[in-house]
């Protein structure tokens, strides 16, 4: 309980309960299997990308190129025919490798060249977006249907998207109990202390980027499986969403404070808010405005809450 309070998850859990209650009231058959599967497959990419941002933020860095990276991976999947690389599974493997490569580039720029991640990933984001546009100038193209089928399939009656989310959380739980995960938090909490304790700060941050981008890769594949086409703009919104989810989830942008569970909650809050706005029958023109307001309100709530419980 104390760990929860310290992680700052309680206020975000409260928010989650509120929006869930609203959603359950507004969405017919919210508790039916069909709606559940529907919701899960919609939320999965957001959750994965928010988790990615969370891990990077925990190490006291930031990545503003996540959205553009998602677009690039999506366009890669839409451009390269599965048959050319040995089937859809190989293609997905390559997409994950691409994600790792992008993460490695960002990680290197931040750790080896020492550029501030805020603006450096802003720059690499422009490059990713440019490359995505080069591959898919106009939204279109097709992605191997197998990928879509895999995504909407179930294994032992469990929908695949849910499995992916569970796998991602499992990965984090494993890392979180591993030396590596604790070192990511230590580096974010106090880099000087970490350095003095003999922790290779740059290496740990680099690995945080790699782990984060692996999740970005999964998220991009999930999005592609839903749209089955390429679009260089498909990931753009995820950058803001991921940063907002991280803050709503009680993860300090100053690093070291919070858990990926918070990011999960933050991502769910944002996803369900979109649901609520949709099912509440709010005219479409108001949706953007309400979304913005909710984000601002949630941020304000979290900022005030974090101030109140701040550790001196």
């Amino acid at each position: 309980m104390r760990a929860l309070r310290h992680a700052g998850v309680i206020p975000s859990l409260l928010m989650l309960v509120v929006v869930l209650a609203l959603n359950a009231r507004l969405q017919h058959h919210f508790f039916s299997m069909l709606s559940f599967e529907d919701n899960v497959s919609t939320f999965t990419p957001t959750i994965l990308i928010c988790l990615a941002q969370a891990i990077i933020v925990l190490s006291r860095e930031l990545d503003l190129s996540l959205g553009a990276g998602v677009s690039l991976i999506n366009c890669f999947l839409a451009t390269v025919p599965a048959s050319a690389v040995g089937g859809p599974w190989a293609l997905m493997g390559l997409a994950l490798l691409l994600a790792l490569a992008l993460g490695a580039i960002n990680g290197l720029i931040v750790t080896v060249f020492g550029l501030p991640s805020l603006i450096a990933t802003f720059a690499t984001g422009a490059v990713w977006y440019g490359l995505a546009l080069t591959m898919v100038p106009q939204p279109g193209g097709t992605i191997d249907e197998t990928i879509g089928n895999v995504y909407s399939d179930t294994v032992f009656h469990i929908p695949v998207p849910l499995l992916i989310v569970l796998a991602a959380m499992l990965i984090w739980t494993v890392i979180g109990r591993h030396r590596l995960g604790r070192r990511i938090v230590a580096v974010g909490s106090n880099p000087v202390a970490a350095f003095q304790a003999g922790i290779p700060v740059a290496g740990v941050k680099f690995i945080a980027y790699l782990v984060g981008w692996l999740l970005v890769g999964l998220g991009a594949i999930a999005i592609s499986a839903q749209t089955l086409s390429g679009d260089a703009g498909v990931g753009t919104a995820y950058t803001l969403t991921s940063v907002a989810a991280v803050v709503i989830g009680g993860i300090s942008l100053a690093g070291g404070r919070g858990t990926p569970w918070g990011a999960l909650v933050g991502a769910l809050v944002l996803g369900i808010v979109a649901n609520v706005i949709y099912f509440a029958g709010i005219p479409s023109i108001w949706q953007e405005f309400f979304k913005g307001l909710v984000i601002v309100a949630a941020l304000g709530f979290m900022v005030i809450e974090q101030r109140r419980t701040a550790i001196a």
């Binding site: 310290h6 109990r177 591993h178 030396r179 590596l180 604790r182 070192r183 938090v185 230590a186 974010g188 909490s189 106090n190 000087v192 202390a193 970490a194 003095q196 304790a197 003999g198 922790i199 070291g256 404070r257 550790i311």
Partner: peptide, 24 residues
Amino acid sequence: SLAPDMPVWENIFLGAEICAPGGF
């Protein structure tokens, strides 16, 4: 120079973590 967000016991073994095989 401590990691303020981490518990006392983790601070004591910061950088010299006590791990089971595999690094857990």
